[in-house]
Design a protein around this nucleic acid. Structure first.
Lengths: 139, 139
DNA sequence: CGGGATCCCGTTGGATACTG
DNA sequence: CAGTATCCAACGGGATCCCG
């Protein structure tokens, strides 16, 4: 039996990533943008409509003001979120998804659904692995 | 299309995340799993068919052996990748996506497509932001 | 309220050397 | 080839204080 899977396998495969010719297939971009600890959670919260700074902070439990500021700034910079300042006293600011940002929520939703659908299976696989590989910590 | 969905959100909206009642909506899981620097790229490579250790290493440019090992181990632990050892000399090992792992590639593909589709827009927004906010570095 | 500025620590991950 | 073992630098991110 030859191990000659040298050719192009699989149906409609993803393009190769990382090669010089294909610096990457675009995944790096999206990952660098929403792959951090908070971005997706903020997007999810904003998917429910415009939110003020403190509202997001309360909704996304565990986030610090610092990280909320940074996260929301980066999303604004990338054009996924629009920041609106109302000249009241004290200042009032709200954030909402742009069209582009909103288009991301569908994908995020799909990922969340996938996660929920496979969560048990994955937990099982994980336990099985840990049982077979004692003391072998990967985390 | 107006952005006036102030109320309880659009169609089949995402559930609130972070609340004590809803510890999270599942996004955290998937993010913790594939949100790191290399996992998705390895999955993409494996989407093209079974690969040996060195093949992945060469394909995913910039990854170190250490990180490839860790990444592939974690994916194996989660049941997304199956590792097969052939008792040859020298040792030969290949990795391939499991059914569960393969089911993720569709989502990853969607993310990549989204990224490619919006890459210009985002780059533009970014440049515009940087132009308006000089010296104000967010990265 | 909506942040900015610092300090500081834990984790991620790169470089390198060694092994079966 | 397919890893394992260390060491170490960079960065993410939490805590705290301060300001308009």
């Amino acid at each position: 039996m030859s191990v000659t899977h040298t050719g192009v396998t699989g149906p409609a495969a993803l393009e190769p990533c990382g090669q010089p010719e294909h610096p990457d297939c675009g995944i790096r971009d999206v990952l660098d943008r929403v792959g951090d600890k908070w971005s997706v959670l903020v997007i999810v919260e904003l998917a429910g409509g415009p939110r003020r700074f403190r509202e997001i902070e309360r909704a996304v439990q565990g986030i610090s003001q610092r990280m909320l500021t940074l996260t929301v700034r980066r999303l604004e910079r990338d054009g996924l979120v629009r920041r609106t300042v109302y000249p009241t006293v004290p200042a009032q600011v709200d954030y909402r998804l742009t069209e582009v940002g909103a288009s991301l929520t569908h994908l995020v939703k799909a990922l969340a659904d996938w996660s929920l659908a496979h969560r048990e299976i994955i937990a099982g696989a994980r336990d099985a692995y840990d049982a077979e590989h004692p003391g072998h910590d990967i985390h």
